[in-house]
Amino acid sequence: MNQTDKELIKKVLTDVAKEFAFMFADDWSEQQDVDPPYIRAEMSFSGPYTGKAIMATPEDLCKEMMSNVLGIDEEETDIEVEPKDALCEFLNIFCGNFLTSLAGTEPVFELQPPSADEINDEQWEKIKQDANFVKLNLDDYPVYISVEYEKEQKDAV
């Protein structure tokens, strides 16, 4: 992933975090410890650009995000919302806004619904070491994001 893409990811995620979850993003320092469990969400897209977006974060951030979005603590509601669902929606909104920032508002993209799963320590460490992931801090939790894509190949006439 090139530096321009990384800057774009950072900008879009910062904007979406502020508007969707009322959270502020800045750079993540790897010196900070975080506890498992960890959640990884992924979604794919196709259109002028085809690829996938991946986001990984501790489950505690998903819970905090859920509370912020709903404006209530988890214990205060009988609405059954899973922390994973909040991360999936965060990724979904991020991805839609990223693609518009990348390609403009004319092209049509098909976005597949996101899915999320818990990952183990080894998988978490692998993501942490992966240079393709942008690393950001949201309310003292790390968020690792990557977007891999290829430009659509037009058939030669």
Binding site: V16, E19, F20, N92, I93, C95, G96, N97, L99, T100, T105, E106, P107, V108, F109, L111
Partner: peptide, 27 residues
Amino acid sequence: VSTEGSQTRVEELKSKGVKAYLRKPFT
């Protein structure tokens, strides 16, 4: 109410009767 950012698609859906469009994240 969607993350959809394509004006092309929004216009297409409006031609099928969609009355309004709100992009996520919304206030």
